[in-house]
């Protein structure tokens, strides 16, 4: 090692951090978009329910079965729970839509100001989805949806 080590100041790192945040938010907007679609179309609610129930198992590394020995009953009682949850989830759709819009806008701004790299694919995705989200949001505000 002949050079001095690269240890930048925090101010030098700011553009990199902002781009990093932009990339994360861009990815998160996809998640919120999926959640929005799932809550808008009631048929997706059971899919979402079973996905969450299944996801909790690896997420808790199986310890959920120790805390809840009858965890599997959530699968068998699924229909009752889904029926009870559907109105609540339907009410959450504007929230997910708003989160999609916010993450799309912030990520687009952050990726547009990146001076080091072009993010054409992500920007095209953001603009096209944002156009759809905007139309739906206007529809909700206008009471059409």
């Amino acid at each position: 090692m002949k050079n001095k080590k690269y240890r930048p100041y925090l101010a030098d790192m700011a553009p990199s951090y902002l781009t990093h945040l932009g990339l994360i938010l861009s990815n998160l907007s996809i998640l919120f978009l999926i959640l929005t679609i799932a809550t808008f179309f009631v048929v997706f609610i059971p899919v979402l329910y079973y996905l969450i129930i299944i996801a909790i198992i690896p997420l808790t590394i199986g310890t959920v079965f120790i805390v809840f020995p009858n965890y599997f009953s959530l699968f068998t009682k699924g229909t009752d729970i889904i029926n009870a949850l559907t109105p609540v989830i339907e009410k959450a759709s504007p929230l997910f839509l708003a989160l999609t819009a916010i993450t799309l806008v912030v990520s687009t701004i952050l990726l547009l100001v990146d001076k080091k790299e072009r993010h054409t694919g992500r920007l095209v995705y953001s603009f096209s989805i944002f156009a759809v989200v905007l139309v739906v949001l206007i529809g909700i505000i206008g009471g059409a949806v």
Binding site: N3, K5, Y6, R7, Y9, L10, S16, Y17, H20
Partner: peptide, 12 residues
Amino acid sequence: TVYTFTELASPL
């Protein structure tokens, strides 16, 4: 001079 850029090199 060329360095590898990594966020892990920053102070915070």
